[in-house]
Each structure stands twice: as structure tokens, then as C-alpha cells.
Design a protein around this nucleic acid. Structure first.
Lengths: 217, 217
DNA sequence: TAGATTGTTAATCGATTAACAATC
DNA sequence: TAGATTGTTAATCGATTAACAATC
């Protein structure tokens, strides 16, 4: 990792997990090296983009050879912070919250679920993979005492903004926001939004547009 | 909706649901009209972008007045295809599939869940909101007979590609893909990916980057 | 009418692609 | 060495922002 690993555009960052995924598969298939050209055909992007993207973080390849799959996979993992352990909690133990809590792939990547919180008495006392669902009142102390890094917000938008503000005061580092609302947090707290209805509406747009075009033909 | 509503860039399309959300809130608050300037401050984007975006679909505003909130809300809804009913099925009745099936907001927007499918005998016969979980073998016939438009894929990546190909042959119009794999479907079938681990890795990148910057100071 | 604000053209900025010299 | 392929600079393309004439 070089000095210039800051000021990377989010367009580039968004592509890193996909590179990581493809390199992981190549590695599992036992592929030792790959050229930007071959990778570009596999991933359906330009070889130019691949080389530009990688060179944002330093030169990982070798002229005349290409890229070593295992090495590149590991380096991109490091860039993504997957060589560290990240603790997280889930706030909102409804269907979506519990579904995410059950998702073991996150653990495998170093994201460790430390606790779940909800205000619904019927959910409190329950658990997911042995992780207890605790009452909302205990959230702040828990985050502070355990230095939780990431909070996953899977709760109604009505309470999301207030809870996010509390978490900010508790020293949370990042919020993975599934609530249908934009959070406005102090600089330095990372927010990644997953707006499922927005995504579905985008699908709906493309679907509708395509149907109309067909009708017109 | 005018002639030139095609060839809209996906960058613009991605912003439409957010406009829709803000306009819906303004409408509910009883706000009658809004200028691009005021909306830009609310949404933290430039007024220029707002006007450019809207004008991709025709002129919805009025000089000297601004935009009528209710009218604009309804028009963007139409553009997004929310004035139509869309039938959908969920393939993969695990935690995430059931969580999405329980999500009532989709129904409210005109997306109607018609069936769920899984190959796990323990899940088959169960139901979500009265919608039965059926065996995978019945999927193709069901999609054809009920002219299902959208399939939500919430299943392991190992089976996702094969299932997507089947759905394509069954005449599905769009796939909302939660499996961690890229689908390669014939032109004309819309695919919207929700790669949750990619999203979490992006969060991890930003988190890690920020921590390192702080350490260096 | 005068003021406000859109719709739209032009300018800028950033991201992607192409080209090629460097080098393994 | 010759061939292959990167790293990187330059060219192109597209998206965003600024400016302003049109018009309500």
C-alpha cells in the first residue's frame, strides 16, 4: 500500500469487491496468474480500466507476466480492510436484521456480530446464533464498552435518524444503513446505504421502459 | 412522458427514487410547491442537477413558480413504473427471502408477491403472509401460467446462475439478484444486483482508510 | 410590469478508454 | 533476445455544474 491510497474515487472503490470476488474464484480454481486482458474478458470491463484501477494502489503486476492471482487477491483484501477484525451490532431485530445476523459469510470475512438490539419486548431475550437481542436502552453502554466499530441499522425510518445520532455520540465508526432515510452524521463516520426500495424502483424503471419500447415497435 | 424518455443514463435513473422519496415526504407535510434551489438544499445536490434530471423526461416546472410537489411526485412515480401492478416471486425462502417477502412497503408500491420457491423440504409447505413456499420443480410452470414479471433471487450463488437461466426461458422480465454472482442473461431481461457483501466491503474500505489517515496524523 | 425560476446551452470537471514506452 | 504485458500519459467521452435567455 503506497502513499497515494487516499483520494481514490468511490467509482473505483465500488469496483474493488467485484475484483476481489473474481480473483477469489480464480484462486480457488487454481489459476496462478492472469493478464488484464484475460481478466477483462471474464469480467466484461476494459483491460485499461483494470490496470488503471489497480495502479491507484501501486503496481501489483509485472510486465510480460501479468498479475499473480493469489498475491493480487490478498492485496485487494488488505485494501478493503479484510485483514482486520471488525466488530458490529445490529440495531433492529426484525426479519431483515435477523436475516443479516444469520449470514455467516460476514463472519468469514472478519465481521463479528457482537450484539443485537430492539425495542420490541417480544424480540428482546431472543437470540441469533447465540447472540442475544438486548433492549435499546442498553445499546449506548454496549457500544462504548465494547468499542463497536460498525452498526447495522435495520429499523423503521422513523427511529433511524435518532438512533444514528445516538450511535455517533457513542463513538461508532461506521453505519450500514438499511433504513429508508438519509442520515446526516458528522464527518468521519462512514455511512453506506442499502436502500432496497430504491433498488427495486430502479429495476421497475428499466422493466417499464423496456416494455414500453417493445410495445411501440 | 415524452418521446425522449429513452437513453437516459443509469446515473440519472439511480437518482429518481431519491427524488421520489423526498417529494413524497414534502407532499405528506403539505408542501405545495418547491423550487429547484430549495430542493437542492434539502437533498444536498445542486439545483442544476435537479433541473437537468427532470428535464430528461420533459418540463415539469414553471418559470417563476417552481415545481408543484404533488404533480411532480406523481409524474416521477409514473416514470418509475409505480402506476402499474408488478407481480413477483421469491426464489430462495431462507432468512433473507422471507424477510423480503414480509416487507409490506413493496406491496404498497404495487409489487405483489405471488409465490415463493425453495428446494429445502423443511421450508416447502410453509408460508409468508399466506403466500405458500412451493418446491423448485413447480417454479417454471408457475412463472409461465401466472406471467410473473419479476423474480427475486435469494439463494446461494451455486444455484443462482442455473435458476436465472431457467427463469429466462420461462419468460421472466426482470431479476432482482441478491446472490453473490453475476448473471449473464439475454438482452432484454433487466437485472438489478444487490450484492450485500460488496456493499459491506465498500464500507470496510472507507472505514479502514479513515482509521489509517487518523493514525498517521 | 418586475421578480423569480425554469429550461437549456455552454463550460468544466472527472472518469473511462486508447495508445505506447518501459520493462520483465 | 523477442514477445508479452504492465504502468502511465494522452485522448475521448460522459456527467456535472454554471450561466443565462426564455417565460411565467
Amino acid at each position: 500500500m503506497t502513499e497515494n491510497d487516499r483520494g481514490i474515487s468511490q467509482a473505483v472503490v465500488s469496483r474493488l469487491p467485484r475484483y476481489f470476488r473474481y480473483l477469489g474464484e480464480l484462486k480457488d480454481e487454481g489459476v496462478e496468474r492472469i493478464s488484464s486482458q484475460d481478466l477483462s474478458e471474464l469480467m466484461k470491463v476494459t483491460a485499461s480500466q483494470i490496470r488503471q484501477d489497480f495502479n491507484n494502489f501501486g503496481g501489483f503486476g509485472q510486465q510480460g507476466y501479468g498479475y499473480n492471482v493469489e498475491y493480487l487477491y490478498r492485496e485487494i483484501g488488505k485494501i478493503l480492510g479484510l485483514d482486520r477484525i471488525h466488530s458490529y451490532i445490529i440495531v433492529g431485530a426484525g426479519n431483515l436484521g435477523r436475516a443479516l445476523g444469520n449470514y455467516l459469510n460476514f463472519e468469514r470475512r472478519g465481521f463479528l456480530l457482537k450484539g443485537m438490539f430492539d425495542q420490541n419486548p417480544r424480540l428482546i431475550g431472543g437470540s441469533v446464533r447465540g447472540i442475544p437481542v438486548m433492549p435499546m436502552e442498553e445499546m449506548d453502554r454496549f457500544v462504548r464498552e465494547n468499542a463497536i466499530e460498525i452498526a447495522v441499522l435495520t429499523l423503521p425510518k422513523a427511529s433511524a435518524v435518532e438512533v444514528a445520532d445516538r450511535l455517533a455520540r457513542d463513538g461508532i465508526k461506521a453505519i450500514w444503513n438499511f433504513a429508508h432515510v438519509d442520515l446526516n452524521l458528522p464527518e468521519g463516520i462512514q455511512v453506506e446505504n442499502v436502500h432496497l426500495s430504491d433498488s427495486l424502483m430502479k429495476l421497475s424503471y428499466n422493466l417499464t421502459r423496456y416494455s414500453k419500447e417493445q410495445e411501440e415497435k
